[in-house]
């Protein structure tokens, strides 16, 4: 094997992945909340669990909540100085991401319950990477199964063992490769993108002759004046024309992709993407309204879009949809 074999080399990747088996996935990590009646009640409401032993301040936690107590939720990746994922596990996931396996889905879960959990129990846990499978092709895409085994403790006492298997995979059906192209932001268009970042749709109006214009350019095409003001559009408009793109794939977009020109209520036209409507539902004159989307497209939970917003349009709500 070439010493230069990279992560795109199957054999090299398989060897690198296998090296993570047996390494820790979490070390002396702590559940973000102590076991508490509120989370128990919320879980029971949704699951339809009416067992009285889960009700009230002395409730026992449903056993199947075991994993809930160690879920990160929306917290930053590292909080309170206790990394809930080991460096080894982060490396393994990054290696899979780099190999194109950016999506994740859980496939199996085995839990053993050794001691009930009560409100007030402080949760700590340790986990090990049990196995990383060779490359597998599934309906969702091609990837690798990663199995972890977590020992969950309450007040230091072993309360449960949680074995969890995920598939980290490269999505098979999106037809898109690589990230969505980022908008070109320069001195002439910076004002527009600053508006978008604040969820305001801005066009220009010539100070001298009053002609509105879009896209942003330094001078007025009608009178040549370089003096202008930025005006906030309502965001309402209609489809002026559109094209349904079936092929080639647009990076970061779901195919088919609807490209369109929107005529804003204020009279300027804007080339954009139309979302939230099937191709057969599109028509010239369709009322639409602006919304702001993360330009990052796909990526895993937690947001990898880098926060760049782009304006897109979707059908305006009609009267009979509202109360």
């Amino acid at each position: 094997m070439s010493p230069l074999a990279g992560p795109d080399d199957d054999d090299s990747l398989a060897l690198r992945l296998a090296a993570y088996e047996g390494r820790p996935a979490a070390v002396a990590a702590r559940g973000p909340d102590v076991v508490n009646p509120a989370m128990i009640r919320h879980w029971c409401e949704v699951m339809g669990d009416t067992d009285p032993v889960h009700q009230g301040p002395g409730a026992v936690a449903p056993a199947a909540m075991l994993q809930v107590w160690i879920m990160r939720g929306g917290a930053p990746r590292r909080s309170g100085g206790t990394p809930e994922r080991s460096a080894a596990y982060e490396e393994l996931l990054a290696l899979l991401d780099d190999a194109g396996c950016t999506a994740v889905v859980a496939t199996d879960c085995e839990q053993e319950y050794l001691r009930p959990l009560w409100p007030g129990d402080v949760i700590t846990y340790d986990a090990v990477i049990e196995s990383v499978s060779p490359r597998k092709t599934t309906r969702l895409g091609t990837g690798h199964f990663v199995t972890t085994r977590t020992e969950i403790r309450a007040g230091g006492e072993l309360a449960g063992v949680h074995r969890f298997r995920i598939l980290k995979y490269a999505p098979a059906r999106t037809g898109t490769q690589g990230p969505r192209p980022r908008p070109v932001i320069n001195r002439d268009t910076a004002g527009f993108w600053e508006g978008v970042a604040a969820r305001r749709l801005l066009f220009q109006r010539c100070t001298d002759c009053g002609t509105p214009r879009f896209p942003w350019v330094p001078g007025c095409a009608d009178c040549g004046s370089e003096r202008w003001t930025a005006v906030r559009a309502s965001g309402a408009g209609t489809v002026y024309t559109y094209t349904v793109v079936h092929h080639p794939p647009v990076p970061g977009a779901t195919m088919p992709h609807c490209a369109g020109v929107i005529e804003l209520a204020e009279g300027v036209r804007m080339a954009t993407e139309i979302r939230g409507v099937a191709p057969e539902g599109l028509r010239v004159g369709l009322p639409v309204t602006v919304e702001y989307a993360d330009a990052g497209g796909g990526g895993d939970a937690g947001g990898t879009g880098g926060g760049q917003l782009i304006p897109v349009f979707r059908p305006a709500a009609t009267r009979d949809e509202g109360p």
Partner: peptide, 19 residues
């Protein structure tokens, strides 16, 4: 309620982007 904020469980566009 299970503290699982993976976008595929609440965001249809993100789910579609992942197949």
């Amino acid at each position: 309620v299970t503290r699982d904020f993976q976008d595929v469980h609440h965001d249809p566009e993100a789910a579609r982007a992942k197949g």
